[in-house]
Design a protein around this nucleic acid. Structure first.
Lengths: 133, 133
DNA sequence: CTGTATCCGAAAAGATACTG
DNA sequence: CAGTATCTTTTCGGATACAG
């Protein structure tokens, strides 16, 4: 902890090169859920129980196919969701949260609570700060 | 929520341009604590109760002055820490967590718990995934 | 339908030098 | 001591085209 050089999350595959990582567990989690789309994907798959690619694409306005794929792959790699491919024509792929991801989602909801409790404080603080410039 | 186009955190000042933001509270929080150094700074200031600039610089190996400054400014702007400047020579600046930040830190510690509980699962999943490539 | 492959611009972070 | 200013590098994400 407090080791410095904590890598931030990325949607691109992670080589794990950054030698001084993997030390603070908290940054580890944050790496997993950071990235512009991870939370949205996690939340939607969780809400649907089981989700298909195009369904996610439609459910998350603004996401590109590339980013959806990248985000899904990273979450799968980290064991947060499973990917099941049916070799039919047309193909069908199903995504589901793992139990670990469901527990994570629960913990994250506590963070959401914090955000709701303090959102006016944060907003006011920003206005103050920006005005004082 | 699930609105798409959630901006990710940045250490650079945030203009708030990204029109479709500020909708999912969770992404709001994540924006605040993302950035490579935010958690480290938050944690160290919290541990010291009151911290000075150089103290933080020494306590967070690898951080540059620029990034320390940017990170501190963003946290201050969001009302997560206070900055008190004493116009002495040499100058002295003190940083403290706000109450909101202490509550945030507590919630984040629950995330850390998740990370510790699942870190072997995640690690194994990654090895599996990478092997299968 | 479920992806890949490329290329490109934007944004985050690092290096280095300078200052009240 | 506590920052700024500038420049460069690295990483992330968007756009577009193509494919099994």
């Amino acid at each position: 902890m407090l080791n410095g050089n904590q890598g931030r999350g990325t949607a691109e595959p992670d080589d794990g090169h950054d030698a001084v990582r993997h030390v603070c567990p908290l940054n580890e989690v944050l790496d997993r859920v950071s990235g512009k789309w991870a939370i949205g994907v996690l939340t939607l798959v969780g809400a649907e129980e089981v989700a298909r690619f195009t369904e996610l694409e439609r459910g998350i306005p603004g996401i590109s196919r590339r980013m959806l794929t990248l985000t899904l792959r990273n979450l799968e790699r980290d064991g947060l969701l499973t990917r099941t491919v049916y070799a039919t024509v047309p193909p069908r792929t199903e995504y589901r949260l793992t139990e670990a991801a469901r527990e994570l989602a629960h913990t994250l909801s506590l963070l959401t609570d914090w955000a709701k409790r303090h959102q006016s404080h944060v907003q006011a603080s920003r206005l103050d700060y920006d005005d004082s410039l």
